[in-house]
């Protein structure tokens, strides 16, 4: 049997993404500030076939648009709640604060997320509990 390879979508702004990492190793990246993220985009990615979503944000106080600092976490918690109400596991959505320089941390996050999603299995709307 072929091994299941989960599809992860990363939502992050340019300043969070490490520069020296080969982006071909990462699944798919949607660039843009997570503080302004339209939840609609995230929901449609899940519908299109993503198994998990990673939201990356600068650490508190370091975001370029200082006014919006902290908005991303509110959206993340609300979306997690909405997904669990729709019987989708909360663990399919992950939020982390990351500095520009931490390319090691970024790859580690993607690996962790991949193994977590492998244990959860592909996202099927009917079976998800």
């Amino acid at each position: 049997m072929e091994e299941y390879e989960p599809k992860i979508i990363v939502f992050a702004c340019k300043s969070c993404l490490p520069k020296n990492v080969g982006l071909e190793e990462i699944p798919l990246v949607r660039e843009g500030c997570v503080n302004h993220l339209n939840p609609k985009l995230l929901l449609s990615e899940l519908k299109k076939g993503a198994d998990g979503i990673l939201m990356l944000c600068s650490p508190p106080g370091e975001c370029h648009s200082a006014e919006e600092d902290g908005e991303a976490f509110k959206r993340f918690v609300l979306l997690q709640r909405l997904l669990s109400d729709l019987r989708i596991s909360r663990e399919r959505l992950r939020f982390e604060c990351l500095k520009e320089s931490e390319s090691f941390g970024f790859m580690k996050l993607v690996k962790e997320m991949t193994s977590k999603l492998k244990s959860l299995g592909p996202l099927r709307w009917e079976n998800e509990a």
Partner: peptide
């Protein structure tokens, strides 16, 4: 749902992660 989450995020009081949760 998507549009309403944006609205809720904008009216909720910010602060510590535990308060938001």
């Amino acid at each position: 749902g998507g549009a309403y989450i944006s609205t809720l995020a904008s009216i909720m009081c910010g602060g510590e992660k535990t308060t938001i949760r």
